[in-house]
Every structure is written in structure tokens, then in C-alpha cells.
Nucleic acid binder design. Structure first.
Lengths: 366, 366
DNA sequence: GTTACGTATGGCACCGATAACATAGGCTCG
DNA sequence: CGAGCCTATGTTATCGGTGCCATACGTAAC
């Protein structure tokens, strides 16, 4: 089917065999040198070249030296398509991202994945899905599967896993970041429940008697877990949780929920599920004349680069997305990192830690 | 050389031939179906299958239908490695990004590139360089070249172009975003000079007699051009430009420069080269008791998602990074977009437009 | 009624590497 | 000293497509 889709694809760039070259070099060099060329130059067989380059133990050091010299001399670079075809591995990792939902995290996770993959000799191919939609998700996975990726890092909270997704992730090793599990996928997760708990506890410790929560969308596992942590923390303090407000991670949704909060005089502390929403919340509160943190304390999650430059600077639970992406790759490549065990237990290779700034304070004492 | 580096790479994932399968299907299906299989099923030759799938005009509609049916039935997907090897095209575009310098733009450009590439049947492989360094840049290009990408989108401001970069970009079609040109590369650019002019003019129009500027780092072409626009605008208004302050795009650098600004009473208007720096500037000003926009007006560039949620909301020159990335791919694929002509002239396919919010106001009248 | 050309299709070599098997010395050990 | 094994290397088949050429048929042109 994807093969069919491809019918309409445009074939354009490349193909014109570099006619623009400075024609100064001998014409024989038009084609990139191949292993056979290296073999000839070094006076060995192509197979030996292959072995030498891949570090096989059974190669005479002297031979290896000759091969490397020939490689250097000819400027040989391996052809990854050929390698992929014959070895069955593409040395490429597919990264699935969600276009909405926090550009900071996306960008940091990407950087982490790419760095770790690159260090291990893997390339990273990306697929972004525009919205949290099962169909789009399937499409992206197929697309990457067609490209022949050796593994997936899925940085999208899979809530409902379809048969097709199962099929694909069963054939190709997969690590899901904070998502739900599929048949074959391993899950790497920050302990989001703990994050929710820490944030909420911080507010209680400051003396607040009640903590409200503006969560992320219910389809997101992160959102659910943070909410869980919030609830658990409140109930273990003997407090009944107030009504839940829900945003969609965008600053704008934070603004809208913030307008509601601003109208409820008794609110003194809010746990907001992301920094970006917190920006919106604070703005709404200010517009209604409620001061942060004097009237209302705000804690959020992420610690994006701008968190320290909010007005007031945000107290927030830090998430190290870069490290997070890198850990996913490590897990995928088998250099084991912590894996999630059962439904709720998860490795905390990437710990959640609270950064206290100025958006939280003890409640006003009348 | 890269071939040599590869010696140390780790080969791990994949390779274990999906032993975890639900063994319910007939054993013959262990291997993915190939074109030959499709050909057999459809009763034609493999060559015809290839033609049918690629949309060759010389295929009988009836035959094509049979082929597509066979594809559907077998769940055939083409093997991209094989295709790349035999056709010499990988259908992959390499995207080079800079880890520092604004995660918003990075993330949006990436999304744009990926969307446009995907629509044209191309995959996107990324390489992030940690800092603006010639060596790292060369490395990234080689890495992608080794992967056999068909084209480059370079979203990094190349200032000094080395021989090696020239070599690579001469062989492989390249589009540079707002960078300097290399031998073979085309350059796509927002008219940054115009952006600088628009921003500065806005402040002058409000009645300010002088406009200060906090620029980005000098190695960045964007930074230079914005500064140029600022200078030109001032000089054509008969104003002598004040001393230049320089940041590094980070909010923190904005904060530091903002502290300086705050100490100079006569400053009433500042053009800050990026939104993220503007956050820092505003914070510094507030801390010193100077109000934005009452005491000092601030205009910046980018219009990131949080720009509307700054306190006060930022007046800023919008850049549509997503569109920008998409346009680069279009240019690369030959569906011509605007190209930069000579040194200074550039296509404005992606226009710069001012979004007026609350960080600018007329100067206080004493 | 040949010639000439366009359309639909098949056959085969080949892209560049790797896996699997084969081979030839050299060494160990009973 | 011959069996058995390890090391270093070569040979061949193969991965799954695509490029190029050949072929067969139908039809328009002279």
C-alpha cells in the first residue's frame, strides 16, 4: 500500500550525474570507489576489506594496515544502501514525534536521540505526526518501516494501540517514551507520578491547604500519571481533591483555564502540568489582578529554557529530555538502561527533580 | 575515513529474526514478500511490477490493477535499500541543525522539512551539530553523505565554508537556510534585513528618537542582516546608531544585556534580535524597576509560541519557520520557490510581518 | 504491403556490500 | 606424525530492486 502511494511521488533531485564538476580530475574518478577498488589497491580480496573495516578479529594487522592505507588513499566511503541490502540492517533508527505538544521537549528529545544514535553509528530518520491520531500514527510507523529502520523510538503517547501498530512493533525493536506498551515495545519513562507528587507536596509543604490541578489532555499518559500523583499526594494528606481542569499543553489553553482559576477566590495553589501552560495561567491571573505567588502559587513541569524568565520565574519539576532521548536509544541498542517493569513501576533512569524559583510561596496569612 | 570510524560502531538491535512471532501464520511468510513474489501472484514479470508501482505510463491499466491487487494481497512493501542501491537514489534528505540557537525554530523548521519531504516521498535524516564549528559541520555533512542522502537542507548559518564542504555540496544538491552560499548550494532566506528595518521603523513610528539593538552572535548571518536593517533604518531617519550590544540568542544573554540597558536612563526603545533574548531583557528591566513598555519599548523577532504570554506580550516580527522549512524542500526538489540572487538580494517567499502586542508603546512624554 | 514506429512486456546484467562456505597453512596434542 | 583445530584469506551466491535491451504485437504512413 505504501508501495502504491509511492506511485505519485516526485522523483527529482539527484540523478543528474554531477555534470557541474570542475572537470580537472581524471575521468576515472567519476564513480565513487567501491570495496573492489580498495581491494585491488591493497592487493587483497573485497571480503578481506570488508572484514578489515568492520574490525573482524581474524585479520592480520599488517593486512589491515594496507587496507586502511588504500581506503585513505582512494577516499573510500562505504555505500550504505549496499550494506543495508546485503546485511539486512540499515543502521537507522526511526524517531516518531508529535507536532503538537511542546516544541521544547520535542527538540531536546530529538537532539538526545540523535547524539546517542550517532555515537553508536546509527542514523536517525524522523516522522512527525500532526495530531494524536491512530491513523496518522500507523502511517508514520509504516513509512519508517518502509525505510527499513532497525528500530523505533516513539516519543508519542500511544494510548490505543491498533493491530497494525502491534504488527510493526513486533517485527522491529521499539522503545516508547512515556507511552503505553505494545506487544514488543519496551517503555522508558520518567516517573511522572512521582513528578506529580513532588510538585503537589511542595505546595502542601509551603502551607497550602488545597492544591488545584490543570492537567494535560487525558489521552496523554504523562498527563494521567501526573494527575495520579497529584491525587495520591492529596489523599495521603487527607485532602479531598478539587475539581480537575484540563488543558491541551498549549499556553493558550493554560490561559483559558487560568481565567477560571482567577474567578475562584479560595484557590491559593495550582499544579500546572506543563511550563507552557503555566505561562498562560500566570497571564490570566495577572489580568484579573491576582498576583503570583502572593495570591496564587504555581508549580509546573518541564523546566524549559524560558522557565527561569517567566514573570515570576517558574518553580517547576525538571525533566531532562535530552538525556531521556539518549537513554531511549541506549535501551534500544541493548546497552541496558532501566526498563519499565509492570504497569506502574518504571525505571527512573531520568529522575524528576524540583527546581524552586519564584512562582511559589506560602499562602497569605490573614 | 568514516568507513574506518565505523569499525568501532556497535551492531546490536535487529538481527534476531523475529522469533517472538505468534506462530500462527504459515511458515513461508517469514520473509517479507519481494517483487518477484508479487510478480508471480499477478502473473507478470518483476519488471512489470516495478513499472506498475512507479507509475510508468506504458502499463496496461488492467495489468496495473492485477499488480496492485497482488501487492495488496501479499502486503508487499518495497525494500528501500534495494531501491537505493540499484537506482542510486536514496529518497532521503539530510537535514543539518544546530543544537544551540533557539529550540523553537529548530523544531518548527524540522516539522516543515519533514512534512514537505514526506509529501514528496522523501525521508528525512537529521544531523545536529553541537556548536557553530567548522569541523563539526564537516563531520555532519560527511555523515549524511555516507548515508547516501539525495540532498541537504542546511539550517545552520555557514559562515566559513571549507574546501571539504564545497566538495560535498557540489556533489549533492543543497539548500541553505539563511546561510552563506557554497559552490553548489542555493540559498533560501527570509529578508532579515527587512525584518530589522520593520522592527526599528515600528519603534520610530511610535515616536522614539533612538533605538538600541541587542543582536545575535556575529557569526550568524541572520544576526548580521537584522543589524544591517536596523542601521539602515536609523540612518535613513538621520539618526546615528547607538553602541551595539550582542547576545547569543539565549534568554540568559538577553538578561545580561538587559542589565546594561537598565542602567542607561536615556534608552526608551530596544530592538532585540530574538524573542527568547527578549524574555531575558524584560526580566532584567523589571528587576531594575523599569517598566515595559512604559519606560522601555521592546520589539523582537520570531514570534515563538510563548511570545504572546510574556509579560507584557511581545511585539515581534513573525517568522514562519514551518513554512520556511517546507519551502527549502520545495526548492531542493525543484518545484521552484524563490531563490536568492546575488549577495544581498533574496527571495521573500517567506515574508516577515510585524505582530504588534503590548511590549511597545509611545515614549513617555515629560 | 512493406517500412516504421509506439505500446506493453519480458530477460538479464548489475548496483556494492555481506553471509556462507571453501581453502591453505601453522600449531597443538596424544 | 597424523588428526583436529584455529587463523587468515579467497570464492561464490545473494540481497531486491532498476536500467537497458530485446521482443511481440498493432497500427499509421508511404
Amino acid at each position: 500500500m505504501n508501495a502504491v502511494d509511492h506511485m505519485n511521488a516526485v522523483d527529482d533531485i539527484a540523478g543528474r550525474p554531477r555534470e557541474g564538476n570542475t572537470m580537472t580530475e581524471d575521468t576515472a574518478r567519476l564513480r565513487q570507489p567501491s570495496m573492489a577498488d580498495v581491494a585491488r589497491t591493497a592487493g587483497v580480496s573485497a571480503q578481506t576489506v570488508s572484514r578489515a573495516l568492520r574490525g573482524s578479529p581474524n585479520v592480520n594487522p599488517e593486512t589491515r594496515r594496507r587496507v586502511l592505507a588504500a581506503v585513505e588513499q582512494l577516499g573510500y566511503r562505504f555505500n550504505s544502501a549496499a550494506r543495508a541490502l546485503s546485511s539486512g540492517r540499515s543502521h537507522t533508527i526511526g524517531l516518531v514525534l508529535l507536532a503538537s505538544g511542546g516544541y521544547y521537549s520535542r527538540s531536546a528529545v530529538t537532539a538526545g536521540v540523535e547524539a546517542a544514535a550517532g555515537a553508536a553509528g546509527y542514523a536517525v530518520s524522523i516522522a512527525t505526526i500532526a495530531a494524536l491520531d491512530t491513523g496518522l500514527m500507523e502511517q508514520s510507523l509504516s513509512k519508517l518501516a518502509d525505510q527499513g529502520v532497525d528500530g523505533f523510538v516513539i516519543a508519542v503517547p500511544l494510548i490505543s494501540v491498533t493491530r497494525k501498530m502491534e504488527d510493526i512493533t513486533r517485527d522491529i525493536p521499539t522503545v516508547t517514551l512515556d507511552g503505553s506498551r505494545t506487544a514488543g515495545a519496551r517503555v522508558l519513562g520518567i516517573d511522572q507520578r512521582e513528578a506529580g507528587r513532588v510538585a503537589t507536596q511542595h505546595l502542601l509543604d509551603l502551607g497550602h491547604r488545597q492544591v488545584w490541578h490543570i492537567s494535560g489532555p487525558d489521552e496523554w499518559i504523562e498527563a494521567r500519571r501526573r494527575r495520579q500523583g497529584w491525587q495520591e499526594c492529596l489523599s495521603s494528606a487527607g485532602i479531598e481533591a478539587p475539581p480537575l481542569l484540563e488543558g491541551d499543553w498549549s499556553p493558550d489553553s493554560g490561559y483559558r483555564q487560568g481565567q477560571i482559576i482567577a474567578m475562584i477566590p479560595e484557590v491559593t495553589a495550582v499544579f500546572v502540568a506543563s511550563d507552557e501552560m503555566a505561562f498562560g495561567v500566570i497571564r490570566a491571573l495577572h489580568e484579573r489582578g491576582r498576583s503570583v505567588p502572593d495570591d496564587v502559587s504555581i508549580v509546573s513541569v518541564d523546566d524549559i529554557a524560558l522557565a527561569a524568565y517567566s514573570a515570576p520565574p517558574l518553580t517547576t519539576v525538571r525533566q531532562d529530555f535530552y538525556h531521556y532521548g539518549a537513554a531511549a536509544v541506549a535501551l534500544l541498542l541493548g546497552e541496558d538502561a532501566d526498563t519499565e517493569g509492570a504497569a506502574g513501576t518504571q525505571g527512573d533512569s531520568v529522575a524528576a527533580s524540583l527546581t524552586v524559583r519564584a512562582s511559589t510561596a506560602p499562602p497569605r496569612t490573614h
